[in-house]
């Protein structure tokens, strides 16, 4: 016990001095609005529903509400484009709820056949890039119409 007397002070000076957190600390998640395509992978994985998707016809909004976030980092893990990352930031106390919200608005693509908005333009372009040139047009068609078109072609081939 006497031994303890000579020890250095273990109490941190924080909040009067900054507090170092280690590499890999799971702090506030931040979405990179340039990278996000609005695919919704993170929304499906998020355990507490801190991430939500909403479509209003013209836009899709990916919303992160830190008030529900449990900092598990599942969003970071499942994002196919590394668009969401956990930072080292942990000082999130605020008197305004707005400070706890991050929204990413993305323009929707309309189906070139039926005109229905079906995915974000950015996601559709990513898909198109991955297809061979002669099939690229299919990316701009909604899944329903795509199904109809391909069954038409299949039927045509059989005939």
């Amino acid at each position: 016990m006497v031994e303890g007397l000579g020890k250095r002070v273990v109490t941190e000076a924080y909040p009067w001095a900054p507090l170092e957190v280690p590499e890999g600390f799971r702090g506030k998640p931040v979405i990179d609005p340039e990278k996000c395509v609005g695919c919704g992978s993170c929304v499906n994985a998020c355990p507490p529903n801190a991430l939500t998707l909403s479509d209003d016809g013209r836009h899709r909004v990916v919303k992160l509400f830190l008030g529900r976030c449990i900092f598990c980092g599942r969003c970071e893990e499942v994002c196919p484009f590394n668009a969401i990352e956990l930072t080292k930031e942990f000082e999130l106390a605020t008197s305004s709820t707005e400070d706890l919200v991050q929204e990413v608005r993305l323009v929707m693509a309309k189906c070139t056949v039926c005109g229905r908005p079906y995915a974000t333009l950015r996601e559709v372009r990513k898909v198109a890039e991955s297809l061979p040139e002669n099939l690229r047009g299919l990316a701009y068609v909604c899944p329903d119409c795509r199904g109809r078109i391909s069954s038409y072609f299949v039927g045509f081939a059989r005939r």
């Binding site: 280690p22 890999g24 600390f25 799971r26 900092f71 980092g73 956990l86």
Partner: peptide, 14 residues
């Protein structure tokens, strides 16, 4: 502190 370094959080290891 070691738990935090290993998992990213002191207590909820996730």
């Amino acid at each position: 502190r070691v738990a935090e370094a290993l998992t990213g959080n002191r207590k909820t290891y996730g």
